[in-house]
């Protein structure tokens, strides 16, 4: 029997903000891709899990589109940018999550992610995810008055 590896949680969370990745063929609807690639940690309803530091997507992620850098951040977190999904599938998944979990917080005329945009952002991975999160959430508080600084 193989021993189960006691992987350190922070390592997993930092590299897998969304535990992405099912390398099997990933055809299907955004909802299916969410269950397969994200729900393991973010939970089926997107509520995340406070104790182990898994961000809640509900009522939060739409705000990120309101400040510069926030939009890029959502597509650059490891779970999104390093997923085995295609650029098109990732764009569709991001758009679906925004509407599904945070429709109220979206700007009045939200711009949808495109496959091209995801492709560009994937070429610019974040060196320090937590540092960027802090920058974006600080800006959200200053400019929009929404406080998402606590992690998760």
């Amino acid at each position: 029997m193989r021993e189960k590896l006691p992987l350190p949680l922070p390592l997993l969370l930092l590299t897998l903000a969304c535990p992405v990745v099912f390398a099997a063929q990933s055809v299907g609807s955004p909802r299916l891709n969410f269950v397969l690639h994200c729900a393991g940690c973010h939970a089926m309803d997107g509520s995340g899990n406070n104790a182990p530091g898994i961000p809640n997507l509900r009522g939060t992620i739409g705000n990120f589109l309101k400040v510069e850098g926030g939009r890029d951040y959502l597509a650059q977190v490891p779970g999104a940018s390093q997923s085995p999904l295609s650029d098109q599938e990732t764009a569709e998944l991001l758009n679906w999550m925004l509407r599904e979990f945070s429709a109220k917080e979206l700007p009045a005329t939200p711009k949808l992610y495109s496959a091209d945009e995801v492709r560009q952002l994937r070429r610019r991975p974040l060196a320090d995810v937590m540092k960027r999160r802090i920058e974006v959430t600080d800006k959200l508080l200053r400019e929009v008055g929404v406080d998402l600084r606590s992690y998760p």
Binding site: K4, L5, L9, L12, V21, N49, A51
Partner: peptide
């Protein structure tokens, strides 16, 4: 691909 690796102890959290 840790998120789909079954040797992980998912009790970690």
């Amino acid at each position: 691909r840790m998120g789909v690796h079954n040797d992980i102890n998912w009790c970690m959290s």
